[in-house]
């Protein structure tokens, strides 16, 4: 399966929310990173068919999705940001409703619901009201409804916002399992969510695709530019003003700074292995 986005542009008056975005995606997990306002949600909205691009086209296996019509939507699963769903529906009722929306035949509804609930570990909450679910459970319900129609393309918008670390790990595991035969596009600004599971990262900044590649490839871009240095408390401010400081960690009266810099910032500093967050910082803190 191949999903190709060609020269996607979205303008609102004079403002450009997406500027000439292009990418070719296939099965696996793709992380879509960027600050708030970078264009992630705009891109997602265009991708799932609720917003029309000003220019450009999307091809799925070589066919323009506009030509495919609603058949294209059959191949999409979507989890929106901060979903409320219907609080007065029970979990099973809500999933049945989503089955109806996704044109799943009646004979398959029960088995399909059972299957997705098992996949997201929500079987126990079958009869619970959506409003009574915890944040993590609601997110899992969100994934459950997204995969009801066994989509080829799964689009998740900030899926781990508000989840505790345990839930986030569980979530990542679910995604990894699902991505075997699906294209999973995970939009987030929490880097660790995609760092370990994404096969490719797309970084958006001010509507443009500024970087694309596997985590390793992106990390290579800042190899040799990431430094650790220990400073006194009264020096911190000076360092923060002079360098791109990614992290400040307290160590018994002193502070360990992680800095992204082309040159070694001082004699006291030593080079460290870069991470994806360092890449993120190097792009957005310039």
């Amino acid at each position: 399966m191949e999903l190709r986005l060609e020269h996607i542009k979205k303008r609102y008056g004079k403002q450009c929310a997406l500027d000439d975005f292009g990418a070719t995606l296939s099965e696996g997990v793709y992380g879509l990173l960027g600050h708030n306002g970078a264009g992630k949600t705009t891109l997602i909205s265009i991708l799932i068919g609720i917003l029309e691009a000003t220019e450009g086209r999307i091809l799925l296996d070589g066919v323009d999705v506009k030509q495919m019509g609603t058949r294209y939507l059959d191949r999409i699963g979507y989890l929106p940001q901060y979903p409320l769903f219907y609080k007065n529906f029970r979990t099973d009722e809500f999933l049945k409703y989503m089955c109806a929306l996704k044109a799943i035949p009646r004979s398959l509804v029960s088995s399909r619901i059972e299957e997705v609930l098992e996949q997201v570990n929500l079987t126990a909450a079958y009869k619970k009201r959506v409003g009574a679910l915890s944040g993590g459970m609601r997110q899992r319900l969100g994934i459950a409804q997204a995969i009801l129609n066994r989509p080829d393309i799964l689009v998740l918008d900030e899926p781990t916002a508000g989840l505790d670390p345990g839930e986030r790990i569980r979530f990542r595991n679910i995604i990894s399992r699902l991505s075997k035969d699906k294209l999973v596009l995970l939009a987030t600004h929490i880097v660790p969510d995609v760092e370990h599971i994404a096969k490719e990262i797309l970084i958006l900044n001010k509507g443009r695709l500024v970087m694309q590649g596997s985590p390793e490839q992106l990390e290579k871009q800042v190899e040799g530019k990431v430094w650790d240095v220990i400073v006194a408390e009264d020096e911190i401010e000076e360092w923060v003003e002079s360098y791109q400081v990614r992290n400040v960690k307290r160590l018994d009266g002193e502070f360990l700074l992680r800095i992204v810099s082309d040159e070694a910032p001082s004699g006291r500093s030593h080079q460290v292995r870069p991470s994806l967050e360092d890449v993120f910082l190097s792009i957005f803190e310039k």
């Binding site: 909205s45 799932i48 068919g49 609720i50 609603t70 058949r71 939507l73 059959d74 999409i76 979507y78 929106p80 979903p83 989503m98 109806a100 929306l101 996704k102 044109a103 409804q145 129609n149």
Partner: peptide, 10 residues
């Protein structure tokens, strides 16, 4: 958004 991104929802 969920409705509009479903085949029957749109």
């Amino acid at each position: 958004a969920l409705l509009l991104s479903s085949s029957r929802g749109k």
